[in-house]
Design a protein around this nucleic acid. Structure first.
Lengths: 217, 217
DNA sequence: GTCTCTAATGGACGATCGTCCATTTAATGT
DNA sequence: ACATTAAATGGACGATCGTCCATTAGAGAC
């Protein structure tokens, strides 16, 4: 059998196939998120995480210094992945109309890639403990600055041509995010009944009312 | 010292001032909710609940048969109280316009009585564990049938006079509830910045767009 | 091969968990 | 006053929690 199975990681550093601290770190985070989605935060213990990851109990203390830090790292990882995927899904050409850009955000947020059983369970689990867990609270906000700016910019562009109530853009931005938030809750509450298409249409309809002549079907 | 201090409960049954099973049952539920709001569901243990209520450890098993049932009863109690208070706050005269009735629901949901630090923390804590706790899931739905019917009825009345897309009423109803849901999340995330008035105005504005000529300031 | 360093292991540890029950206490019936 | 019934107590119990560390194993340097 091969005893030295060296490979290169993306950054080109030497790395062994049997020893890989960073990979194990990521493995623990994934196992944590999977466990939360599977059995809930309440029952997510160090033991459960370890048996799911296949790693030993000591690893959590070694890589994160404790369970709390692992939970925080998992929340951060989840948040980062969400926004990365959101970016990927909304990467339209820069010649896209502002309406299309807004609808792209909405449809991305409601897509299978972002809105699925695993992510909603994890998201709401973190939010539920955020108020008593400062580390997690930092990553449980819906108001990601970049996403807010994307929407605000698009709405500003739409509003410029029309009458321009200065609060219109703010309301459209927060309203859209609030509606999306509500859709996630609907999805969590009853996944069978939920319809991505109808949810997106509902939000479009609300925006059509806010911007006369725009967002029409 | 008085040894027999008998009083009557609302139903007129005899009751002692020192022995009162039903009062203790309620006391345990309140203590549970307070503990969750204070330190979070994760840290809400039988011991914490008991020391807060001032009752002995055996009481939970006696009155509820276990911690899980107590949590479920607490969720039910919380839900019941919410809708009772909602009813109280939206009890307008029957001559009120449908727009006023809709706005009453919105303003009630955003009022200090319903939307406050304690209730949001409890609400989101329950929702966070609902997916892994069937008993609680039954009481974590936003779609209370009676509240939905109130909104649907009012929106139907408004839509009757105008053009009547059959889906308009459905969309207005779910959209309003989704927006309120989002407002609760905003409140939980940053209570300092949150403004009840601006949130209500935002929803009103969205509805004004949906029903031309209605919901104008 | 030998040495060195670090990743990784897995069990020990005290603390706390939720459940349960033998006992005590209070109220009622006779 | 005494017996009966139900409410309430509080500690015992085994299981599990999260932390920590003595030990083992693997990879590079020489």
């Amino acid at each position: 059998m091969e005893s030295l199975n060296r490979v290169k990681d993306p950054k080109g550093r030497k790395r062994s196939s049997k020893r890989d601290p960073e990979a194990n770190r990521q493995l623990l985070i994934k196992a944590t998120l999977d466990t939360i989605a599977d059995i809930g935060v309440t029952d997510t213990s160090v033991s459960r995480i370890c048996e799911r990851s296949g790693l030993s109990r000591g690893m959590i203390h070694l890589h994160f210094g404790g369970k709390d830090n692992l939970l925080t790292a998992a929340a951060q990882h989840f948040s980062t992945e969400y926004y990365a995927e959101m970016d990927r899904l909304t990467d339209l050409g820069s010649d896209a109309s502002p309406e299309d850009r807004v609808m792209a955000v909405i449809e991305a947020d409601l897509s299978e890639a972002l809105l699925n059983p695993r992510s909603t369970k994890i998201w709401h689990a973190f939010r539920g403990i955020a108020s008593s867990h400062p580390g997690i609270a930092r990553y449980s906000s819906t108001q990601d600055p970049k996403l807010v700016e994307t929407l605000r910019h698009a709405f500003t562009e739409i509003a410029r041509k029309n009458g321009h109530d200065p609060n219109l853009v703010n309301d459209a931005t927060s309203g859209t995010l609030a509606l999306l938030e509500g859709m996630w809750v609907n999805y969590l509450t009853d996944m069978q009944v939920f319809s991505r298409r109808r949810s997106a249409e509902l939000i479009r309809r609300f925006l059509a009312g806010l911007f006369p002549g725009k967002f029409i079907l």
